[in-house]
Nucleic acid binder design. Structure first.
Lengths: 157, 157
DNA sequence: TCGGATATTTCGAAGGATCGGAATATCCGC
DNA sequence: GCGGATATTCCGATCCTTCGAAATATCCGA
């Protein structure tokens, strides 16, 4: 019956989402390898996308790394041309990490086909559908954010 | 107008998906830390979910690791109780990697709240909506799979 | 059954990541 | 301006991961 289909549907969705999470891991790994980065570096770069005025200390707090470890991460990222260090004008002890965008072109090229495919997929649906999709993704993201915080907190304890 | 909204919608979706990818990275990292695993280990565990009769050699091929590196990965996973090694009956040189499920309960507990939240979100939509969601996720997963393969291939070259 | 091929493991070495603590530079309140 | 607090970096040490090459076990064809 309907409730039968329903639970099956939910199961399939859960499974699909897990698959996708794993796939994302692989994709990130492949990208990281291409640019000579490791997962830790990627995590830091990712922070950077959401926090524009990111400082070294913030990275340490957010990732759970020691401050000295963050220094070497930044060394790596800077050496590879992903970020620059700038002293904060209002507090010159702080180091703000600024993305250089130097690899944007290469990154774009790397994801060109993928982006096209995603675009092609989205084209198949109308605005109303996409609005729904956006809503769900954002809600799921919120849940994932909380889960991450919870687990991280548990790890420290 | 509509085309204005449309492109904005698409942009938001792309951005949301990127966010989600980053979030997944964080979540995986937190889980890995909890269980004393690293990202490489996770990748291998993930392979296991999609390929039940996974052998050590297959892992090496799929991850790009050396066979000796895979041995140590399996040592780790086995020591922590995630997998068991079994000799393949039809070719006793091969080692098939079997998940033990020993951490399933703990994992379940770790994701309990998250799972509940996801369920709660899904409950807000009817079957037709969820069917659409499943379709999109699967299509996106296919695209991501191809992208990963492409990038990995490029890395080897 | 012998010998080359295949799957995995062991071994030794090398490189990388991370840590804690000392050092340096800067800020801020007194 | 001094002294304690804060942000980051430097240093030395350790642990972990990975690798290549050699060793081991097994398979398969001649």
């Amino acid at each position: 019956m309907s409730s039968e289909n329903r639970s099956e549907l939910v199961d399939q969705l859960m499974s699909a989402m897990r698959n996708q999470a794993g796939r994302g891991l692989m994709l990130h790994g492949a990208v990281a390898e291409r640019f000579g980065l490791n997962f830790t570096d990627l995590k830091c770069l990712d922070l950077l996308r959401s926090e524009p005025e990111l400082t070294a200390g913030r990275i340490a707090a957010a990732t759970g790394l020691s401050t000295s470890a963050v220094t070497t991460v930044l060394d790596r990222l800077e050496r590879r041309g992903f970020v620059e260090r700038r002293r904060a004008p209002e507090d010159r002890r702080k180091v703000v990490v600024v993305p250089t965008g130097r690899h944007d072109a290469e990154m774009q090229e790397l994801f060109a086909e993928f982006g096209d495919e995603v675009m092609a997929i989205l084209r198949d649906y109308d605005d109303e559908r996409l609005g729904f999709l956006l809503e769900v993704i954002n809600r799921l993201d919120g849940a994932a954010r909380e889960a991450t915080a919870r687990i991280t907190a548990g790890n420290r304890a």
